[in-house]
Design a protein around this nucleic acid. Structure first.
Lengths: 156, 156
DNA sequence: TATTGTTATACTCTATAACTATA
DNA sequence: TATAGTTATAGAGTATAACAATA
């Protein structure tokens, strides 16, 4: 009995510890700061709002607004609006879908691909720099577990 | 030369791995889902918008809107608006600050404290459940590193 | 009939700028 | 003069509901 209760307490302490850290990560300012740092000086088309569309396109390849919507987490009308901004900035172009004449495929331009690569490199370098003081191997272990946590975690 | 370049590649791979996981965490849907799950059935006053104020008050004790603002990440007028909602829901009350007659202290009510405890317990349990399959000790190690990462990480 | 992209509308949340009261 | 809380206003972003075109 006391063992079971003890084990529950330990588990819950870990839960609370992670919850606290998660609270920091999900904080509004955290996201805004990170996105601002990342997209700074990347041109008018790229900001906190349009970047998720750009990133999703880079991850999945050309897709329609309706297909992209659930991945970005907004309505397909929202994807259209953001895509129009990215198109105006020259990062995305619209192409008729040869398989479905209703659909318009959103495709990264050369400049769009370059921008995504630059942004991803910046973020990775930023993260790497903040891990410079960690003992050897710790960063790798942390990365693996963080990845597993986001895949299995309390998001479903 | 080749050693240095190799080490840089490995580091950057870790950076990219963490960046990808971070992208999932900072995704709009992740935050919304988690907040919706948490605040479900907790009464009208508690939602994704008001919870950060509630949580900050529980963390720091009674404070004024101006003091709370940077912690929540919004303007003091925004804190006032959210606090009014929480007050209407009976989770927060306003008290005159005895040390400064300009200020109004925001204080958690009994119901407010109970609500925060319930929400935190839910989140911790949620997280704990998702870590149930991890090898012994891994969760604890992950929690420590995640905490350190959020404290030192690329958020400054 | 269902789904596509797109646009107009209503709603929410925010920062900014005012205002009064107090330090 | 500066800062407190509060409120009104304007701006940005979203979902909803329409629309015509196509499956």
């Amino acid at each position: 009995m006391r063992h079971a209760r003890y084990s529950w307490c330990v588990d819950n302490e870990v839960g609370h510890e992670i919850a606290e850290a998660l609270g920091v990560l999900l904080r509004r300012t955290t996201r805004a700061q990170l996105h601002r740092q990342l997209t700074e000086g990347m041109g008018e088309g790229v900001d906190e709002v349009t970047y998720p569309v750009l990133s999703a396109l880079a991850r999945t390849g050309p897709r329609s607004a309706a297909e992209l919507a659930p991945d970005v987490g907004i309505d397909r009308s929202g994807v259209t609006r953001r895509a129009s901004r990215l198109e105006a900035a020259g990062l995305v172009r619209r192409e008729a879908d040869p398989e479905d004449r209703r659909a318009q495929l959103l495709v990264l331009t050369e400049q769009g691909r370059h921008t995504v690569a630059e942004l991803r490199g910046r973020l990775a370098a930023h993260i790497t720099a903040s891990l410079a003081d960690w003992p050897p191997g710790e960063a790798e272990a942390f990365a693996r577990r963080l990845r597993r946590f986001t895949a299995e975690g309390p998001f479903a």
